[in-house]
């Protein structure tokens, strides 16, 4: 297995976006790309990352391999790469290590690191194809700000989607808060658009703690998609055009 990115910045951001939520995980490498699927330790959230082979500068995977890696260690290794350095990952069949090579574009500096692989029993869940009742596309910075703001007031947020607006509400010991975002088009700046596709109205409650973990992916993507159906996990997707995506799933809080 050998994969090369032209710039380290995307991989650094991907790892930063998921490491605090899932810790140790397995990267599944096939000839179509690298992916991981992992739940957080309390099995409330699930992360699915796909890095498509087309998104790499060069990519080769002769035999499918599952590489168990501590994401905190991977973040440490990637700290040694400059944002504009190229990154090459190498793993030989049966080897218990993965190699990272970073090269500056002027080629005057090359650094190499070897990371020990871990034995990780990952439990994969089948994610069913779902026709969601409501899909909201919005700037990722708006979601990050909304979740951070409401976290000051409560632990949970109720997200309600009606025809042309989406409402985030919370309440706690010191008071209550809500943020309403209305659909807005923008032909010249599509990344600032708020688009609401509602087949059925939805209202679901989620733990803000996890949503705040998810919005760590905001630096990867200007836009985010919230896909919701009543009594179904929320899907928060950060698309990376040409490269792949990070999708986070979060189980709702349910009234007993």
């Amino acid at each position: 297995f050998e994969a090369k990115w032209d710039h380290a910045s995307t991989l650094k951001k991907v790892i930063d976006a998921v490491k605090d939520l899932i810790g140790d995980t397995s990267w599944d490498c096939t000839n179509t790309g690298m992916s991981l699927q992992s739940m957080d330790s309390s099995h409330v959230a699930l992360v699915h990352v796909l890095l498509k082979s087309e998104g790499f500068e060069s990519y080769r995977c002769d035999r499918n391999v599952s590489m168990g890696i501590s994401l905190n260690s991977m973040a440490k290794v990637l700290k040694c790469a400059g944002n504009d350095d190229s990154v090459t990952l190498r793993h030989e069949s049966e080897s218990s290590v993965v190699n990272f090579a970073f090269e500056s574009h002027k080629e005057e500096r090359v650094s190499e690191f070897e990371l020990k692989l871990m034995n990780i029993d990952t439990e994969h869940l089948g994610i069913p194809e779902t026709e969601y009742d409501s899909i909201i596309k919005m700037p990722s910075a708006d979601l990050r700000r909304t979740c951070a703001d409401l976290s000051q007031f409560g632990d949970s947020v109720t997200i309600s989607c009606a025809k042309s607006d989406v409402r985030f509400e919370t309440s706690g010991d010191i008071g209550t808060g809500n943020v309403r975002l209305s659909a807005r088009g923008s032909s010249d700046k599509p990344e600032t658009e708020i688009a609401i596709e509602m087949i059925n109205p939805v209202s679901l409650t989620f733990a803000l703690k996890y949503l705040n973990f998810f919005t760590k992916a905001a630096p990867l993507s200007d836009t985010v998609k919230l896909c919701m159906s009543n009594n179904h996990p929320l899907c928060v997707e950060f698309p990376m055009p040409e490269v792949g995506y990070i999708r986070y799933y979060l189980a709702p809080k349910i009234d007993e």
């Binding site: 699930l46 179904h232 996990p233 809080k253």
Partner: peptide, 14 residues
């Protein structure tokens, strides 16, 4: 209050 659901309540292991 509401109870936190778990991923396995919705998605099955494969």
């Amino acid at each position: 209050g509401p109870v936190q659901g778990r991923m396995e309540d919705y998605f099955k292991a494969i």
